[in-house]
């Protein structure tokens, strides 16, 4: 099992500290590029055995035992109507003091983002997991992952 803690120092240079600068974790889910505010991110784990829970919606994959803590796992690919792949990577988020794991395809890297460049998502259909979007310097478009509202999507 390869668990690794996030080393944000490696990504950030100390002189970029600014009020509007925020760290974001980029991850990919199917074709979409998401960014989750690093404040929410606890750690990233891969290939962790998930215990399924019966009689719950399909996007609730089950629970995992992370060093004695029981954490529920949500597959956002199913939430978004995408097709889950075998490449399972779990991002552990802390949302209002509650730990929850999110299954995604791959985790890319940490970036610094000027929150002023974030704008509201014009699209309506996936509004429930996206709180905003912006263009990255390399030309790609990042969707801001709506961590705060993840748990209210029941």
């Amino acid at each position: 099992m390869e668990d690794y803690e996030l080393q944000t120092e490696q990504v950030l240079t100390p002189d970029t500290v600014d009020d509007t600068l925020c760290k974001y974790l980029l991850f990919r889910s199917d074709a979409l590029l998401f960014g989750a505010a690093a404040d929410y991110v606890v750690e990233i784990i891969t290939n962790h055995p998930i215990t399924p829970i019966p009689l719950v919606p399909s996007y609730v994959c089950g629970i995992i035992n992370l060093r004695g803590q029981i954490i529920p796992i949500v597959d956002i690919r199913i939430m978004l109507g995408q097709i889950p792949t075998n490449r399972d990577c779990i991002i552990i988020l802390t949302i209002n003091g509650m730990l929850v794991g999110v299954l995604v395809d791959t985790v890319l890297r940490m970036i610094d983002l000027d929150t002023a460049t974030l704008c509201m998502s014009p699209a309506k259909e996936h509004q429930r997991l996206v709180s905003g979007m912006c263009s990255l310097p390399d030309g790609e478009t990042m969707l801001e992952f709506d961590c705060a509202n993840l748990l209210t999507q029941a």
């Binding site: 829970i53 009689l55 719950v56 919606p57 029981i70 509650m98 748990l151 029941a154």
Partner: peptide
């Protein structure tokens, strides 16, 4: 006995016969 994460309570997991979990 460990309680299940409170997130799962919103799916009424207790009614489906699961009291908790153990490692």
């Amino acid at each position: 006995v460990k309680p299940l994460p409170s997130y799962l309570n919103s799916f009424n997991i207790k009614r489906s016969g699961i009291a908790g979990c153990t490692i």
